[in-house]
Amino acid sequence: MEFTRFLDCLAADHDRLRAVVETDADAPVPTCPGWTVADLTRHVGEVYLHKSVAIREGVEREPWPPEEFAEEEPTALLDRGYAALRADFAVRAPADPAATWYGPDQSVGFWMRRMAQETVVHRIDAELATGRPVAPVPADLAVDGIDELLKVFAAYSVAEWGDYFTDVLAGSPGHTFLVRAGDSAWRVRTGPGELTVTDGDGDGPADVTFSGTPEAVLRRLWNREGTGGDDGVTVEGAPEAVEELRRCIVVATE
């Protein structure tokens, strides 16, 4: 995806999120257990401001958030965070340097992509919490989100912070997963202390196959299916292998 496209998606999903979170601040968020819509709103605002600092100061400041943020209303914090983030994106090129947790990409463009994906997932959270219809996720954004989740979150996290995955992968017999979303596909392989991702169907059989539309697969992998029954994703394979990949993604995205 072009970076201008990420920014367009970020704007659209932020605007939808902002409109939805005002409708029922006390509603529980089923996809974020323990959170209300107000907590979700505050979280997104804090994330925006944290990434703004990472862009402007070249450091991912910790601890975060500052104590004084607790005194701001959640929607005010969201508004301030979004304004700061967009102002930073407006005066910087994607290739400009920025601090990120992802070693291979220390650029502003990383945060353009990441904030577009962060926002669409939390927009879905807000819609599910308030009972609003879930607006469609554009296919290109959904495909990119699957790619980011599998490669940037899961594979990179296992490679860099393998100790966090010991309970999941140490005894893994090794599984191969085929993830198909529309015309796009990824082959994921796990094993003891290992998770790798390659593009395309690859060769040979897979132990588990996920298939569906890009939006449906994105929501399934992010555990944002909602409670409406059939989510449009077909899963074929052993339940224990499916659970292994699910647990890897949960640990990688915590």
Score class of each variant (00 low, 15 high):
Val121Gln: 02
Trp101Glu: 06
Gly45Ile: 06
Ala139Asn: 04
Ala12Pro: 08
Glu243Tyr: 15
Gly229Cys: 12
Cys248Tyr: 01
Ala25Met: 10
Ser184Glu: 05
Val233Pro: 09
Thr31Ile: 08
Ala95Gly: 07
Gly182Glu: 02
Trp111Lys: 09
Ala76Thr: 13
Leu178Phe: 10
Ala27Ser: 10
Gly109Ser: 15
Val47Phe: 13
Ala76His: 14
Thr213Asp: 06
Thr198Gln: 03
Asp8Phe: 14
Arg92Phe: 12
Gly232Arg: 14
Thr253His: 01
Asp105Phe: 14
Leu77Ile: 08
Pro133Cys: 04
Gly162Asp: 07
Arg180Trp: 02
Gly232Val: 06
Asp125Trp: 00
His50Ile: 08
Ala84Pro: 12
Val235Gln: 10
His14Tyr: 14
Trp222Glu: 05
Gln106Asp: 03
Asp140Leu: 06
Ala241Asp: 14
Gly228Tyr: 14
Asp163Glu: 10
Ile124Asn: 01
Pro239Ile: 11
Gly109Asn: 14
Trp35Ala: 04
Thr253Arg: 02
Val121Thr: 06
Phe177Met: 02
Ala27Tyr: 11
Asp140Asn: 04
Val217Gln: 03
Gly171Trp: 04
Asn223Phe: 14
Trp101Phe: 10
Ala135Gln: 06
Gln117Glu: 04
Thr41Val: 08
Thr196Leu: 05
Pro133Glu: 04
Asp140Arg: 05
Val47Cys: 13
Leu77Gly: 11
Glu240Gln: 14
Val242Asp: 14
Val134Trp: 07
Leu78Asn: 07
Val108Ser: 02
Val168Ala: 07
Ala98Tyr: 05
Val21Pro: 08
Arg219Ala: 07
Glu73Pro: 12
Asp39Asn: 12
Asp105Ala: 12
Pro97Lys: 13
Val37Trp: 06
Asp26Gln: 09
Ala129Thr: 01
Glu225Val: 14
Gly193Pro: 03
Cys32Gly: 04
Arg18Ile: 07
Trp35Met: 06
Arg61Glu: 08
Ala99Met: 08
Tyr102Ser: 04
Glu127Arg: 02
Leu78Ala: 06
Met115Pro: 00
Asn223Met: 15
Ala206Met: 05
Ala139Phe: 05
Leu7Phe: 11
Ser157Pro: 09
Leu221Asn: 08
Val217Ala: 08
Glu243Asn: 15
Asp26Arg: 12
Val44Met: 13
Met112Ser: 03
Cys32Ser: 07
Thr4Arg: 10
Asp167Glu: 10
Gly229Thr: 12
Ser157Asp: 13
Asp207Leu: 02
Arg189His: 08
Arg86Met: 09
Ala241Lys: 07
Ala154Glu: 02
Glu243Gln: 15
Lys151Phe: 05
Glu160Gln: 09
Glu194Met: 12
Arg224Asp: 05
Thr119Asn: 10
Thr4Ser: 11
Val208Trp: 01
Ala87Cys: 09
Glu244Ile: 09
